[in-house]
Amino acid sequence: MDFEFWNNCWVKPTQPFHLTKPHHFLTEYFDQYFADKERVLLPLCGKTQDLNFLAQNGINVIGVEFNPRAVESFFADSKLTPEVTSFDNKTRYQTSSIEVWMADFFNINQDDIGHFQAIFDRAALVALPPKMRPDYAKHLISFLAPQGRLLLVTMDYDAEQMSGPPFYIDKAEIEELFPNTEIKQLARTSIIQSHPRWRELELSRLDEVLYEIQLKTV
């Protein structure tokens, strides 16, 4: 992970990958995939409003984010005062229903946060360069409980027109990254008009694609 790149991104007042409201796939599929879950994991969560949306809907939400500026901005912007605990190069920010771990995601394990019936990866996998994705996918899926669901958002565009991040990831790569799983495309939507930065690039297309990933039963 390029810490300097993402830190520079968070310094800017706006970024195309940060939304000021909950992600539309999360709100659209909340009732089907999240409403009955006690806990939900958001990897590489930044300062997403998905945390507040889930908490306000009765979910105990756990986020993991390595950038301190993003974590501190989330709690400041949300006017929340968390309890802060640090140990083993990890810092946990905790309120009654929101828990954010400021740490390298690879240093977080099941002893820290347990397993989940629902995981929402909105902007984590697409932020990682190819060489990091296999290890990330293996680590991420280790937090998924049996019969649980990982909802993964990817980006689809002409890779000759933009190099990323966010990186182009197709279904074939997802199948390689998550073996022994059942993968289904749930939705696709164009976001090319959603931010000035995307419009400046003059891409022929820029779609978000939502996949459902479930461990195969033995």
Rank of each mutant, 00 (worst) to 15 (best):
E65L: 08
A145W: 03
H139T: 02
S163I: 04
A118D: 01
S163A: 09
K47W: 14
F106L: 12
T154R: 02
E83Q: 05
I191K: 06
V126Y: 07
K171E: 08
L128Q: 07
L203S: 05
K79C: 07
P166I: 13
R69Y: 10
W101I: 14
F75M: 04
L125Q: 01
R205D: 12
I62W: 12
L215F: 01
P68K: 07
F143K: 01
N109G: 13
D170N: 09
T48M: 13
Q32L: 03
V61I: 10
D88H: 13
L152N: 04
E160M: 06
E83P: 00
H115D: 04
Y157E: 06
D36C: 15
I113C: 11
R69E: 14
A103I: 14
K184I: 03
R188T: 15
G164S: 08
N8T: 15
Y211R: 03
K138I: 00
F167E: 01
F120K: 13
F75Y: 08
P43Y: 08
I108P: 14
L206M: 11
T154A: 01
H195A: 06
L80M: 15
L51T: 09
D112M: 08
A55P: 10
Y29S: 05
D156A: 07
E72R: 04
V126Q: 02
T189Y: 12
H23V: 12
Q161F: 09
H139A: 02
G114D: 07
M102G: 04
P166W: 11
P68S: 07
I98A: 03
